[in-house]
């Protein structure tokens, strides 16, 4: 009990993260697995569901005041959708919200996405612990 309070007092309130599925495909099993892993690792995870436009994602991030936005995508439209989310977040004034993504994304696209402000990209086989570890470290650094 006291331990939890202590954590909150020491500036370490749980990080808030938004997980969303842009694009048209309706499979969100992968996204839900991430949501659960992050929750179990102590994050407050907001899940907005499938078929989200970049506009919807950016506005939800704005209202929820999250530190990071995770995008899960199978459909292959990552080169347009991921950078568009980054652009809209910045436009809303959310300068330091970390954007990361997951999906089947070729290596050559990964470096292009990073140049456009996507912080990290995870391939299909990535262990959940790597994603959780990355996010924790990344957000701790930010704080």
């Amino acid at each position: 009990m006291v331990k939890v309070e202590n954590i909150q007092e020491s500036n370490l309130r749980p990080h808030r993260v938004l997980i969303a599925k842009p694009g048209l495909d309706g499979h969100d099993r992968g996204a839900k697995v991430i949501v659960r892993a992050l929750r179990d690792a102590g994050f407050e995870v907001i899940y907005t569901g499938i078929r989200q436009t970049p506009e919807m994602i950016a506005r939800a991030a704005l209202q929820e005041d999250v530190s990071a936005v995770g995008l899960s995508l199978l459909s292959g439209a990552h080169m347009t959708l991921f950078p568009e989310v980054v652009r809209l977040l910045r436009k809303e004034g959310l300068e330091d919200v970390v954007v990361f993504g997951g999906g089947i994304i070729p290596d050559e696209d990964v470096s292009k996405l990073k140049k456009q402000g996507v912080d990290q990209v995870f391939g299909p086989g990535t262990p959940l612990s790597s994603i959780v570890g990355y996010l924790r470290e990344r957000l701790e650094k930010k704080q």
Partner: peptide, 27 residues
């Protein structure tokens, strides 16, 4: 874990572009 799954937005996202509505999920 202290973590939380905040899933209510799933059903309310239709109002996301309406500036007269502000929704916040809370743990």
């Amino acid at each position: 874990s202290g973590g939380s799954f905040l899933g209510d937005r799933l059903r309310i996202q239709e109002h996301i572009s309406d500036t007269g509505v502000f929704i916040r999920s809370i743990a």
